[in-house]
């Protein structure tokens, strides 16, 4: 009769994405189903971060939130929303992303072994350095930078930077001890993970040098145990609404972090010049072409999908 969904709590439970994003949604679910469906976060991860998707497929967890980028190669389509210069406002982009998912990605059979309740993007990343400001591509030469995705890693490597891998948990130790010179990261993560003391120069990339794509998914068999009426009520709370809520939280917290950064760093918080942005755009062009080829293999028209996504973002912004 009543269904309890185990949520894979791999991200810090105090982080606003959980405390202000997912937990209120869990409460809404219990409320609209009159307690017939409840969500219980686990005390510690039921599966490691890169196994979020599999954990839900196999029923290890019933519900999970996580980035697509943690399993390279599995979700080639989602790299589209991770490209630079496209995520100005994560809330508006996430609303557009859900529509893109419904119109272009879902029909390809992607994520067909789970029930997808949300698809959103995180705030765009900037170039955060321990010391020297980066104002042009040449400044990145020889700099050791932690990179979150293979695409950023390849591009930075090509322009002479030294991409260093490492988990988010290790970021603080790497930054504070100077193992890395900087990282590409969104402002809200810098403050959210309390590493802002070690960042002394930020170069903001409008629309982000990258973004993350994330899913909110439910195990199919567990979903079937829920009555059609309750599923309908949960769907009404989810999809575009949930995706936008998550994206908007990212955007709002990014703005807060940006304001705090600007106040503290003063002129050391800069926006990349048009010339620098053009340099970056050129550096990314090969990667974009390579993605289009992969997207065609996966069964979508990449140009149409990109145009649809841009148009939806523009519409949402009006």
């Amino acid at each position: 009769e009543s269904v309890t969904l185990r949520y894979n709590q791999w991200f810090p439970s105090g982080h606003w994405s959980q405390a202000e994003g997912l937990y209120p949604w869990f409460e809404d679910i219990a409320r609209v189903t009159e307690g017939r469906v409840t969500v219980e976060p686990s005390a510690k991860p039921l599966a490691p971060p890169n196994r979020n998707y599999q954990a839900v497929v196999d029923g290890v967890a019933d519900i999970a939130w996580g980035p697509h980028g943690y399993t390279p190669g599995v979700f080639p389509l989602t790299e589209m929303v991770e490209f630079p210069f496209i995520t100005e406002n994560a809330g508006l982009s996430s609303r557009a992303y859900w529509r893109l998912w419904k119109a272009h990605f879902e029909p390809t059979g992607m994520q067909s072994d789970v029930v997808t309740l949300g698809m959103h993007v995180t705030a765009g990343g900037n170039i955060s350095m321990r010391e020297a400001q980066v104002t042009r591509l040449a400044d990145l030469k020889g700099k050791k930078l932690r990179v979150p995705t293979p695409v950023v890693g390849r591009v930075l490597g090509k322009i002479g930077a030294v991409p260093v891998s490492g988990s988010l948990g290790e970021l603080r130790e790497m930054l504070s001890r100077g193992i890395i010179d900087g990282t590409v990261i969104s402002d809200e993560l810098v403050t959210g993970f309390h590493v802002d003391d070690d960042v002394h120069a930020v170069t903001r990339i409008p629309g982000g040098i990258f973004s993350n794509s994330a899913f909110i998914i439910v195990n199919k068999a567990k979903w079937e145990q829920i009555s059609e009426q309750d599923r309908e009520a949960i769907r009404a709370l989810s999809g575009e609404r949930l995706s936008e809520i998550m994206g908007r939280l990212w955007h709002e917290n990014d703005l807060k972090a940006r304001a705090a950064f600007q106040e503290r760093l003063g002129t050391a918080y800069q926006t990349a010049s048009d010339a620098f942005q053009d340099e970056l755009r050129a550096a990314y062009s090969d990667e974009l072409e390579a993605w289009k080829a992969r997207a065609r293999d996966a069964g979508i028209d990449p140009e149409a999908a990109l145009a649809f996504y841009r148009q939806q973002i523009a519409e949402a912004g009006e």
Binding site: A47, P48, N50, Q54, A55, D58, G59, V60
Partner: peptide
């Protein structure tokens, strides 16, 4: 708690991810 398929899946995940960490 979770049924055999989920339990067995955890054997596979733990046996591989632990050494790959």
């Amino acid at each position: 708690f979770q049924g055999w398929p989920a339990a067995f899946a955890q054997v596979g995940i733990i046996a591989t991810e632990t050494v790959l960490t």
